[in-house]
Design a protein around this nucleic acid. Structure first.
Lengths: 153, 153
DNA sequence: TATTGTTATACTCTATAACTATA
DNA sequence: TATAGTTATAGAGTATAACAATA
C-alpha cells in the first residue's frame, strides 16, 4: 500500500480522509463532554486543573500567558484564576518589572492537590484506558501530542 | 493501588501510562475548545451537526435515542432538536405505535446542508489534518473510534 | 497610544426538577 | 405507576466591550 504518489512524493489522500475530520471531531467532542461530566464535582474544574498543570510544568506565568496556553481569552482566564485563588490553590503576585502584569504561581496547597490528582489518576479515564489493549494505549499515547498540535495550529 | 495484577496477566503498565490520562485529557479538551471556536458561526453548532450526522448514519431516531447517542440528557436534546427544527434541518413526526415518543428525521434541507458540510471539509480541521504526515493521519483514523469507545464506556 | 488585566454583560450548552401526555 | 418528552430554571464556561492602571 503506497501512501505517496510516485510522481511527487506528496502525501496521497486515502479514501477515508474525507471522513476523518468528521470522525475525529465527533470523537473528540463526545469524549470532552464525558470528561467534563466525570470529574470530581467538589474538586477543581477541568479548566482549572489544566491551569494548575501548566503552572506545574512551566512554572509561574502571567494571566495573559496562561490565557494563551489554554487558548482562552484573558477575561476567561481571570475567572479561572479567581476560582483557583479563592480555593487557595494559586496566588497572584506583582510582576517584577511590569506593573500591568500579574504573575500567577502555585501554592503549596495547589501542588499538593496536583500530586493527589496524579495519585488518583486511576479515576474513570485512566480506568477506562486500562480496559484497552496495550497497543491501543500506545496508539493514544502517540496521538495525544498530535491533538495538542492540532489545537495549537 | 495496583494498576495491574500479576495474577490475571492483564496488560502491564508501561512507564508512560501514569501520564497518559493527563496528556489525553488536555489534548482532547484543548482540541474540543478549538473546534468549538473555529466552526462557522452562521451554521449549525457542533452539537447540532453531530445530531445531523447521527440521523444520516443511523436514520430517523427518537429524541431519547438521540440523547443517548450524544450522551446528553433529554432536555438538552430537546433544545438541540428545537434549533435544528427551527432551521428546517430536521422534522418531528409521531411515533408509529407509541404516542409518547417523538421521531426526528432529516429534511431535504438537512441532507443538503450535511452534503455541503462534507464538501467543505477542507475547513480548518481537515486543512490541519492535511498538514500532518500521512502516517499521522492513519494514527488519528485508528484513534477516532477509540475516542468514541472511551466516551461511550 | 498601546498593552495588561479586570469588570460588566450576554450567550451557549448543559444539567436537575417539575409538568404533561401516554403506556 | 412508569416512561417520553417538554418547560422552567440554574450553573458553568466562554466571549465581546468598556474600563483602569501602567508602559
Amino acid at each position: 500500500m503506497s501512501l505517496t504518489t510516485a510522481a511527487t512524493g506528496a502525501p496521497r489522500v486515502r479514501p477515508g480522509d474525507a471522513e476523518l475530520a468528521g470522525a475525529l471531531r465527533t470523537g473528540v467532542m463526545r469524549l470532552s463532554r464525558r470528561i467534563r461530566n466525570e470529574r470530581d464535582l467538589d474538586g477543581p474544574s477541568v479548566g482549572q486543573l489544566a491551569v494548575l498543570g501548566s503552572l506545574d510544568r512551566f512554572g509561574a506565568r502571567t494571566v495573559g500567558e496562561l490565557a494563551a496556553i489554554e487558548r482562552v481569552k484573558p477575561p476567561s482566564m481571570t475567572r479561572t484564576v479567581n476560582g483557583l485563588s479563592a480555593a487557595g490553590l494559586v496566588a497572584r503576585r506583582a510582576h517584577a518589572t511590569d506593573g500591568r502584569q500579574v504573575v500567577v504561581e502555585l501554592t503549596d496547597a495547589g501542588r499538593a492537590l496536583l500530586a493527589e490528582e496524579r495519585r488518583r489518576r486511576d479515576a474513570w479515564l485512566a480506568h477506562r484506558l486500562l480496559e484497552l489493549e496495550a497497543d491501543e494505549r500506545d496508539l493514544l499515547r502517540r496521538v495525544a501530542p498530535l491533538l495538542e498540535r492540532l489545537a495549537a495550529s
